[in-house]
Design a protein around this nucleic acid. Structure first.
Length: 159
DNA sequence: CGCGGGATTGACT
DNA sequence: GTCAATCCCGCGT
């Protein structure tokens, strides 16, 4: 068991967002993004890494949030040193949380492998930094949209 | 049916 | 700073 606080996300929103997989139309691969909000969209990138997304918005409107960073807070056994860190990339994050394609298309609310909960923490707006998304130079005018959200953390990065 | 590129990472110059 | 690793799938032939 491992869990933590989500600290960094990116939004992929709408059929016109060229950075989104869904911008090239509804296909078997991107079908999940057109589905119901709350679905888990896992895809493989560069043949080596998985990225973990949660579908948002209404059905038939392709949008998802990419979880890029999680601050690990606890695991059931005592904290191994290697667990006490901020997972600062979607690939590493998925490796730690054992996310792979078998979760693709599942409902985040209706499975026992992984879930997201609201712990009622209040986050001040000024602690959330927005920047343009990364790795999407091909996205034309969409590449500069500030759709990356980073939660400030006082925890020192141990990576 | 084959080709090409990607919402990345880590190792190396 | 550059580059390779290596799977999936959309698209062109």
């Amino acid at each position: 068991m491992i869990f933590g606080k989500i600290t960094e996300t990116e939004a992929y929103c709408g059929p016109n967002d060229l950075a989104s997989h869904a911008s090239r139309g509804r296909t078997k691969r991107t079908e999940i993004m057109f589905g119901k909000p709350g679905l888990i969209y896992v895809y493989m990138i560069y043949g080596m890494y998985y990225c973990f997304n949660i579908v948002t918005e209404k059905e038939d409107y392709p949008a998802a949030v990419l979880i890029r960073g999680v601050k690990v807070e606890h695991s059931a056994k005592r904290l191994a040193l290697s667990d006490m860190l901020i997972l600062d990339g979607p690939g590493k994050l998925c490796r730690k949380f054992k996310i792979d394609k078998k979760l693709n298309g599942l409902d985040i609310c209706k499975n026992s492998e992984i879930w997201i909960e609201n712990r009622g923490e209040k986050t001040k707006l000024r602690n959330i930094k927005t920047t343009p998304r990364v790795g999407i130079d091909y996205a034309g005018k969409y590449k500069n949209k500030p759709w990356r959200f980073i939660l400030n953390s006082k925890t020192k990065k141990l990576t």
